[in-house]
């Protein structure tokens, strides 16, 4: 069933329901649950109720007070979701905050992502900053560190954390730390993966088959089953081979 389209370009308020397109370019508020093909917020939009949509684009300020379900969510502005998010594809170059947990297929962060609980996806890539209050789990976790990111736990198949690219031009990361240069870091409690590559990461425990601890890492304990390589500019407390 294809609903009607609504567009708020001044200041307006509509009630929930089934819509084709919802466009808010002024300041708009939607009360109640919404199902839509497409939601575009370029002004300021507030959704009070559950939202289900094929595609959600937030380039202004979007606020969702409940659960959000979408095939695609693109944020270039600021988007806050108070509930859980079930989003197949999330691309955030702005600021994305999720008050519950996130479940989906693909996540790409180039801005800032904040998830209060778990984030579960098949692929997670970041060249931005993220904070995950719970477990970050994906088949592929690919991170280029910019700014300081955090997660309670990271688990998956391939975990690849790289320091920002300036480092590969031969200057020492450890020195960079000492001088307090603004290089990205990751702080995490536990990392578990089959192939783990870490740089500029502080972790209590790292477990994996093939583990590579790169420059700038401080790891309390590494448990590995196949191989472990530790860069001279990394600190590892305990090394345990299983």
């Amino acid at each position: 069933m294809e609903g009607q389209n609504i567009s708020i370009s001044g200041s307006g308020r509509v009630s929930g329901g089934e819509y084709g397109q919802v466009r808010i370019s002024g300041s708009g508020k939607v009360d109640g649950d919404v199902t839509a093909q497409e939601i575009r917020v370029s002004g300021s939009g507030r959704f009070q109720g559950e939202v289900k949509a094929k595609e959600i684009t937030v380039s202004g300020a979007g606020k969702f007070t409940s659960r959000v379900e979408a095939d695609v969510l693109v944020t270039s502005g600021s988007c806050g979701i108070d509930g859980d998010a079930e989003v197949k594809e999330l691309r955030s170059s702005g600021a994305q905050r999720i008050g519950g947990s996130f479940h989906g297929h693909y996540v790409r962060v180039s801005g800032v992502l904040h998830v209060a609980r778990d984030l579960e996806a098949d692929v997670f890539t970041s060249s931005g900053r993220f904070e995950i209050g719970g477990l970050l789990s994906a088949d592929r976790v690919e991170v280029k560190l910019v700014g300081d990111s955090r997660a309670r736990e990271i688990g998956g198949e391939n975990i690849d954390i790289r320091a920002s690219s300036g480092l590969s031009f031969g200057f020492s990361l450890a020195r960079g730390f000492r001088f307090g240069l603004g290089i990205g870091t990751l702080t995490v409690g536990e990392v578990e993966g089959d192939r783990v590559h870490l740089e500029a990461t502080t972790a209590d425990v790292v477990r994996g088959k093939v583990v590579h601890v790169g420059p700038g890492c401080r790891i309390g304990r590494v448990e590995y089953s196949e191989s472990l390589e530790v860069h001279p500019e990394a600190e590892v407390g305990e090394r345990i081979k299983r």
Binding site: H103, E120, D122, S137, A138, D139, G155, G156, E157, N158, E192, G193, D194, R207, G208, K209, E223, R242
Partner: peptide, 20 residues
């Protein structure tokens, strides 16, 4: 957990995938 992996021979990737 580590004993599960060792006994069954499954990988971290599989375990986390099945959990997800």
């Amino acid at each position: 957990k580590k004993d599960v992996l060792e006994q069954t021979g499954i990988s971290y990737g599989q375990l986390y995938r099945w959990k997800r």
